[in-house]
Simulated scan of single mutants.
Amino acid sequence: MPRATSDGVSIHYEREAGDGDPVVFVQGLGYGRWMWRWQREAVADDHEVLAPDTRGTGRSEAGLPPVVSRLPRMLRAPLLLKLFGYSIADLAADLEAVLADAGVGRAHLVGASMGGMVAQRYAIEYDRAASLTLCCTSHGGPDAVPVPEETREHIFDVPKGATERETIRHRMRPAFTERFTNRNPHLMDRIVEWRLEQDASDPAREAQAAAVAGFDESDRVHRIRVPTLVVHGTADRVVPVANGRLLAEKIPGARLVEFEGGSHLFFVEEADRVNERLRSFLADAGRSGRRRRATA
């Protein structure tokens, strides 16, 4: 069970052997490694795969003050937002610790939502990124289109008396299309179980939310100089598609692929189509990297 240490926090990661350049999958806010299971399977034949647990998620430590974590949410959440929460810089440093521990010199980063923010920050601050695939994410800052208030309330305000499973279903409803959830009841049941097993605790989730709230790379994303694929669903109710368009405009040479009618978790709902795009992009990025190294 490999682990890296970042600023005193133990970060767990999974590693699957493969012949090609490593691909690293970085999760969204509160989500466990389960969210990438379809993409991990799709690239495993051609690439080594690394899947870290974001701090506070899965088997990684949260690194939060115990006293704060034990407080009621009404007292805890403001403290985590203003004083004790994470930053995207913290999470990018965790990623660097994982890649260093794994002995990875160059890796393709695939990040969704908050994970896409971590990937952006990482590509700007560190030198191991070979390419970026940025799903349903934003560069943050004043130009970014915020999470709609209705969605925010759905994610963070849970009906009183709801069970743990009911809470999970309530929170993730805006991330899927109703058509998908209605047609895949058994899969939704499995996702609830995966989330119970792997997702962040409430305090860690709130600490991750603080990282997202404070993120702003709008003035620096133009510094990204690796092949970049921006992928977004046009019906994303969590991170509106305008954010993907802004990202693609600001990152030099970025490709933008929109999935018409796609939800926030479009890469789960339309896994086959997304995987085809991802494999093609990774192959192109790998060839470009080899050409650059050959002429260096």
Score class of each variant (00 low, 15 high):
F215H: 14
P66G: 12
I11V: 15
R106V: 08
S280C: 09
F156M: 04
A130W: 00
D53F: 12
V23R: 00
F84Q: 08
Y86C: 07
V26F: 07
R128I: 12
E48I: 10
D90P: 05
R225A: 14
T151F: 00
L95A: 08
P52G: 02
R171E: 10
R277I: 11
R291N: 08
P72Y: 10
L196W: 09
E270D: 11
A144L: 04
G214Y: 00
L265E: 04
T151G: 00
S113G: 07
H186Y: 09
G111C: 12
E61T: 11
Y31K: 06
R237V: 13
I251E: 02
V23H: 02
G56H: 00
R223V: 03
A271N: 09
V9K: 15
M35D: 06
P146H: 01
P227H: 00
Q27W: 04
P146M: 01
V43I: 10
L256D: 08
L132H: 04
R237G: 11
D157F: 15
S87V: 08
D236H: 13
V268S: 03
V43A: 12
G30T: 13
V104I: 15
D21S: 09
A254R: 03
E193P: 05
A296W: 06
I191S: 05
Q27Y: 06
Y86A: 04
Y122P: 02
G116F: 05
G214N: 03
R237F: 12
D202L: 05
G28S: 13
P148T: 08
R279K: 10
G32M: 07
A209K: 00
A107W: 00
P22K: 06
R152W: 09
G85L: 08
G244E: 03
A100G: 06
L75S: 04
G30Y: 10
E96P: 13
G233D: 13
L81P: 02
A144T: 07
V24P: 02
M35S: 09
V239M: 14
A210P: 02
Q198I: 05
A119K: 01
K160W: 01
L91I: 14
I155C: 09
A129V: 10
E269V: 04
E166D: 15
L265G: 05
D90Q: 11
G8Y: 14
Q120L: 11
L278K: 04
D216Q: 00
A77G: 01
H170F: 14
R290E: 14
M188C: 13
N243Y: 00
R245G: 15
L95V: 14
V49P: 11
L247V: 07
R59G: 15
T54H: 01
M1W: 14
S10D: 15
K250P: 04
S138C: 05
I251A: 03
L134R: 15
E14V: 05
S201I: 12
G141Y: 02
E206Q: 13
L29G: 03
A100V: 09
A89K: 07
G140T: 09
R3K: 08
D21C: 09
E96R: 15
I191A: 09
D94I: 09
A285D: 06
P142W: 04
P148N: 07
H264P: 05
Q27R: 13
G244D: 04
D216S: 01
D21T: 09
A283D: 11
A296C: 13
G111W: 03
A123H: 05
T177P: 01
G30V: 12
L99E: 15
